[in-house]
Structures are given as structure tokens and as C-alpha cells.
Simulated scan of single mutants.
Amino acid sequence: MKKLILIAIIASSFVTLSFSFYYMLKIYQSDLSMSSSAGEPMVPKHEERIVIISQEQGSFMMNAIQKGAHEAAEEHHIKIDFWGVYRSNLEGLIKQIDIAIASKASGIVVEGVDHPDFNLMVKKATEKGIPIITINSDAPSSLRKSYIGSDHYQEGIIMGEYIATQLQGKGVVGVIKNLSSPSTDDLRLKGLREVFSKYDGLKIVTAANDPEMSQPKMQTNDILNHYPNVTAFIGLTTESGESIVQAARSRSRTKEYPIFLFDDSPQTIMLIKNGQVKAGLSQHYEDMGILSVNLMKRWLDATQLPLENSYFTPISVVTSSGEKEKALENHSK
């Protein structure tokens, strides 16, 4: 009996010693690991955070920008947040920027608005040491660090030359505008007018300058009512094609109205393939997203200070062939 008790005690002691040895070994390995990496700083996976804010959250344009930005953020190991309003809303957009400033974002990329209230918010961010880059639409009078996107004036030139060729230098062209965000459309219209001025047979007409004429379909009907000799339409607003087509179709003369658009949304591409729209314009939104993150990273790393005033992304005419005919390469200004 005593012998059995002795064996049990020895076995118990052996088990205890084994566990003690095991835990001592783990502690030693942990200490060794800490010692070997003592000279290497602990770098957080997402040390920097960029907030991208849109006036048209959920749109084709913004989804493409976000795709490109996310790709670049992954490459740079930067955390990125996508915020915005779902309808063009200056008050809501400014509120989003203010929240991003309060959250201490490393940098903010936002669709610009040429408005004093927007400029004041950019100034506030600058004073807090938060750089702001505008994307897709600019606010040139603000303290933004740079603008990334299409040269909207050149868009008008490129599309104007294409339309003039398609119409053989003749026709009355109805222009559909975005009344809530006129600055971008004003630049496009300036380019169109410059090209059309070279042709005696080309004339631009627009709907009545009335806030109630905000919808593309209403503008199209107003032009048809006041200019019965109109021969073609240009939609400056994004995704306005279907409204223009419907209004023209209601007059039973759809095929007589070549329609040109300044976007290449899936809806526009379908209208082009169906022959209801003559051509669209691609602004390469993914390129904007990629470039915005890359340039913000350069600013945050102080590897390129200051940035160029503007970085223009490519512009392409999209035709019924489904191919994008690149008309303008990247350039800075």
C-alpha cells in the first residue's frame, strides 16, 4: 500500500514538473521574441485615414471612383471611408466635411462646389492641418491642394468637334443643363460654343432659365416647344439620356434627333447600343479614384509638396461600337 502511495506521489510530481517546464519554456520564447524585435517599431496596419465625400453617393460615377480609390488604398495600406449625400445638397455636403474634420481624418477627398460656404469649410480643414483634394468637380477659389478629374472645358471641345462632324456642321442643337450644379456644365458649354462658333450652320439653344425647368425631360419639352426646328440634343447632365429620349419620342420623331451625352453610365451605354443615343463621353472615374489616393499619400508623406494645381484624367468618346476612343491623355496644369 505504501508502495502504491509512493508511486502516485512520484507520478504527480512528474506531471507538475512537466507543466512547470512547459510554461517556463513559453515565457522564455515570448521574451526572446520581444527581445529580437525590440528595435522594430510597431506600425499600425491603417495608420492614416482618408475620407472620400460625394455629392452623388450610390451613383455609377461615385461607385467607379470608390472602386479605384479602394484599390489604391489597399496598395498603400491606408484606411479609407466613403461618405456623402444621395442628392446634390450643399448643406449636407458641408456637414459631412465638418464631421470628417472633427473625426481627425488624415486627408479629405471631396467633390468640389464653387461656393463661399464650401471655401470656408476647406479653410477650416486647412487650419486643422487636414489637406483637401477636390475630385470630379472643382472649387478653384478654395484652399484645396489640387483638383483631380476631367478638364470640363476640354470635354466641351472634344464632344463639340465630334458632334460638328456627325452633323456635318449644320443644325440647331438643344442643350440640357444641370441647374443645381452649373459650374461644371458652364465649362462644358463654353467648349461647345467655341467649337460651334467655327461653323455658320450650327446653333445652340437652351430651355428657359427657370428653376422649375430642373428636370431634363422638362427642358427637352421646353426646347421642342420653342424651337421646332431643333435637330439634335446634348445632355450635359449625367444619366439624362433616358429622359431626353422619352421626351423626343413623345413627339414621334425620335429617330430624327441625334442625342449626345456627357457620361457613360450603364444606362447610357444601353441607349447607345440600342441606337437611341449617338455617343457618350467617358471620364474614366476609376482613374480619378486611384489618382486621388496616390496624390493624397504623396502629400501626407511630404514626397511631393506642393501638388500641381490640377491633374486631368483621360476623356474618351464612347460610340455604338462599345469602344472608348481615348481623346485626351492624363496631364497636369
Rank of each mutant, 00 (worst) to 15 (best):
A102T: 00
Q219E: 13
K324H: 10
T134C: 05
G289K: 03
K326T: 15
K297Y: 01
K79R: 14
M296C: 13
F14N: 10
K26F: 12
N178Q: 10
L143G: 14
E242W: 04
S321D: 13
I94G: 04
G112T: 04
I290Q: 01
K177I: 07
K255L: 13
H152G: 05
I204A: 12
Q66K: 11
D138T: 11
L90M: 15
G156I: 08
K104N: 13
K203R: 11
G275D: 02
E75A: 11
R251V: 11
K67I: 00
D114V: 10
A327Q: 13
I148V: 10
R193F: 02
Q55I: 06
F118M: 11
S180A: 01
L90I: 15
Q29Y: 08
I27A: 15
D81L: 06
I157D: 04
H77D: 05
Q215F: 00
T303Y: 06
R251F: 01
P211A: 06
S332F: 01
I158M: 12
N89S: 12
E75H: 06
A164M: 12
F21R: 15
I135E: 03
H70M: 04
G201S: 14
S183R: 02
L90D: 13
R249D: 02
Y311W: 06
L93E: 06
I234M: 03
S183W: 11
L307D: 06
E48K: 08
V113M: 07
K45N: 06
R251W: 06
E56V: 07
G107I: 11
A139W: 02
A248Q: 12
K104Y: 03
P41S: 00
P41F: 10
I135V: 09
N119T: 08
D264K: 12
S265G: 02
E323Y: 15
S141P: 00
M61K: 10
V15L: 14
M121S: 10
S150K: 08
S282K: 04
Q304K: 13
L25A: 05
G289V: 01
I259N: 00
V318T: 08
V318I: 01
L328K: 14
P258F: 04
E212N: 10
T238R: 12
A64T: 02
L143V: 13
E239I: 02
M296I: 12
G289E: 03
V85R: 08
S252I: 15
I259Y: 11
E155I: 07
